[in-house]
Amino acid sequence: MAREDVLVTADWAEANLDTPGVVFVEVDEDTSAYDTGHIKGAVKIDWKDDLQDPVRRDFVNQEQFSQLLSERGIANDDTVVLYGGNNNWFAAYAYWYFKLYGHENVKLLDGGRKKWELDAREVATEVPQRERTEYVAKPQDASIRALRDEVTAAIGSKNLIDVRSPDEYAGRLLAPAHLPQEQSQRGGHVPTALSVPWSKAANEDGTFKSDAELREIYVGEAGLDEDKATIAYCRIGERSSHTWFALRELLGYEDVKNYDGSWTEYGSLVGVPIALGDEPGTK
């Protein structure tokens, strides 16, 4: 897959704001950013309210996802261009989510909201009215989602990539440094997991690094085994979507999964092995 098939530049986006069949979607955890200004014509999806089941800890189901996209006026054959804040974490999560439910043409806007703002590009406040569609989601594609048993089974046999910050990996912090630290679960990482913070894949302005740079980071520096399957995780599965995107969509590794349960699930499981400190540890 070529980079331009999955990633578009801000210039491309600006030139295609009114292109029929192209739908811009802003995805964020805090959607108040959308309300203060968004890319003209973009609709919004709330990472939590729209994509998480309100009761169980899981995704909305196939039917609910179909309903959501129908309401937003997105059709099965539309090209969806996703962008958001936080260096595109939630947009990358949504990208993975759209792929999970089988959407064909979906792309990320390189740099997301941040690059758009730093470039001082135009934003709009009016909310577009898109005509309702009859969207039909496909069954979940299990080949890109890892569940907990698969993660414990992968210890010592598959590539496990922990994309949290070094301090979270080592167990010195339990959450990213912009959040208060009180949490109930244990700190540390899945034994044998390599530490490659998500941020290594991104430039300061939020755009992805080049394929050559990415390959050097994961294979050259971190020691990812290219012949093995890979599972990426973080704390709740959005930062690891960013890395999943870099590994599967940009570098083209075929068997890469995102473990969306991530550390908030793994670090709360009874009886599973945990490694502390800066080293991956052993099985």
């Binding site: 805090d30 936080n86 959040l179």
Partner: peptide
């Protein structure tokens, strides 16, 4: 602990 995004 619901999200990883930064609060206001």
């Amino acid at each position: 602990g619901a999200g990883c995004g930064a609060p206001a």
